[in-house]
């Protein structure tokens, strides 16, 4: 019996090593090409180790934008605040929907889900946010539009509550005189740590990666998020690529960013997430099942 287990574990580990390599290899390609000189890149293509090591790409990125450090600060704060509010709103919305005894539950579920399917479009949203709510160039623009609560995560959370929180626990709490808010925060949430950590991670990623809100609602450079700055850099590069006669003078030539820069841009946007991820993993631990239910 023990032998079988070891064999099984070894196979599992081999499979995952393979998957890890498949996931990591292209990333290595990315990092190494961001550290290679432009000429080498064009001649020999990408390689897993930098043939011709240089920090030129990163110099360019950090030189190009003195704002990038401020952008990091803004992104971190916005992500932290936004994720907190969003997770709270999501959980507050999902819990009632998971209670079968709530009248009108199906109607609200439909109202929720409908928003995943139908979208007014960018122009009406923009007109509303800027003319009705005046969020242009405010921090609200980074926190609220399309990010504050997503039907997807509400539904995930609701499914989790339905499947993993036994009704008996809740009934027991109610009989003991607990209010719904207490039931939610004292009993249900502690049992839902894995799912909460999951949606916190996913929502956090959405905030971190968002650049469209910056693109449309922010023109003040001192409110740009990291992704906005990086995306602008890439857009500028694309613009030059598609308008070849524009770069045809010596002045412009000197200023051209290279392929290595594009790779560097990606690395710069990704590293903080990788650094923060282990923090979330702590919570992917099996939840404690409250005793006294079975039997």
């Amino acid at each position: 019996m023990v032998k079988k287990n070891i064999v099984g574990q070894v196979i599992l580990n081999i499979i995952f090593i393979f998957l890890a390599v498949a996931a990591l290899a292209p990333f290595l390609l990315l990092v190494s090409s961001s550290l290679t000189s432009e000429a080498t890149l064009a001649k020999y293509g990408y390689n897993f180790y930098p043939r011709d090591f240089t920090l030129a790409a990163y110099e360019y990125i950090f030189k190009s934008s003195k704002l990038i450090f401020r952008a990091y600060a803004i992104t971190i704060i916005v992500t932290a605040v936004g994720t907190t509010i969003s997770v709270l709103t999501t959980v507050l919305f999902a819990y009632p929907l998971s209670r079968k005894e709530l009248p009108g539950r199906m109607v609200v579920s439909f109202i929720l889900f409908f928003t995943m399917l139908f979208n007014g479009g960018l122009v009406p949203s923009y007109i509303m946010w800027t003319q009705m709510f005046h969020i242009k160039n405010t921090y609200f623009a980074l926190l609220i539009p399309s990010l504050l609560m997503s039907a997807f995560y509400v539904i995930m959370m609701r499914s989790y509550f339905t499947a993993n929180i036994p009704n008996e626990i809740i009934e027991a709490a109610r009989v003991d005189g607990a209010r719904e808010f207490m039931v939610l925060f004292r009993i249900v949430l502690p049992l839902s740590k894995p799912m909460i950590a999951t949606i916190a991670l996913m929502i956090g990623l959405r905030y971190w990666n968002d650049w469209t809100n910056s693109l449309y609602y922010i023109t003040d450079a001192d409110k740009f998020s990291v992704q906005a700055v990086l995306n602008t850099m890439l857009n500028n590069i694309n613009f030059l690529a598609q308008n070849p006669d524009v770069i045809a003078d010596s002045s412009m030539m000197k200023e051209l960013p290279s392929t290595a820069v594009r790779m560097g841009v990606a690395v710069v946007g990704v590293l903080p997430i990788l650094a923060a991820y282990p923090f979330f993993q702590k919570h992917f631990v099996k939840g404690i099942v409250v005793g006294g239910i079975k039997g």
Partner: peptide, 25 residues
């Protein structure tokens, strides 16, 4: 995805067909 001016300065191409006015690289 490379611009011709980069390729030219890096001596990867001999030349290219390009429109211009009075500027030069």
């Amino acid at each position: 995805t490379n611009q011709w001016a980069v390729l030219l300065t890096n001596h990867q191409i001999c030349g290219c067909f390009d429109t211009f006015g009075v500027n030069n690289v």
